[in-house]
Design a protein around this nucleic acid. Structure first.
Lengths: 107, 107
DNA sequence: ACAATATATCAAGATATGTTGATTTAATAG
DNA sequence: CTATTAAATCAACATATCTTGATATATTGT
């Protein structure tokens, strides 16, 4: 029950749904690029990314000081159905604005 | 987006997940029988049933003063996947205690 | 070691959600 | 019409969640 509710409550926020849609569209992105693209302050973004990660939707790959977040694969049935539902919403997303200079990081 | 969030937030509560599981197991039940079975006070139950109905999970059939709630059919993909997930949780449910004397109501 | 950058966490206040008991609405029986 | 029962709604309070700015941690470059 706890895990189910953690999964569901991760979905229960407009900001997080948009984040999932954006990462679904653009693949692995570091926090600062999400910040510049979505116009969110860093602590807010970091919080929501953690909730999505704990909810089983995202993975993080660290490279130096950067943290790359992306949709976790494979997703289980329920989570991938949720993602499919989010795709169907046709959410309007802002363009990707990359500000990171990632040097050797090849993610 | 609004409808999706309404659907998700309907799932985002332990009481409502148990209610779904109970109705899934026992079929159409009136509020008073849910009350006696689940040991919840009436206003609380009524609130959660409304949220589940508005979230697209339940239907109501009225018969006299009784209101019979049951899982709506057919459920769309996302909702039925959610229900399948809830079935998999193996939630321990209390026994059904019927207190209603429904006269002509044949639901 | 020190400074700079990226990210995570914390504390405080604002907003939303859940619980309870009281009240209201609606249908039925006398 | 009045009383009774089932269910819905309301108001007040308690709890949880979200936002923000400040601070902490961690890695890299000098």
């Amino acid at each position: 029950m706890e895990i189910f509710l953690e999964t569901v409550s991760a979905l229960n926020d407009e900001t997080r749904v948009k984040l999932l849609a954006f990462l679904d569209q653009h693949g692995p992105l570091c926090v600062c690029d999400l910040q510049s693209s979505l116009g969110m302050i860093q602590s807010r973004l970091s919080r929501h990314l953690k909730i999505l990660k704990d909810g089983g939707f995202l993975r993080v790959d660290r490279c130096g000081t950067w943290a790359y977040y992306s949709i976790r694969t494979p997703l289980d049935r329920f989570r991938s159905e949720a993602l499919a539902e989010i795709r169907c919403l046709g959410i309007e997303l802002p363009p990707l604005i990359k500000i990171s200079e990632t040097g050797d990081c090849k993610i």
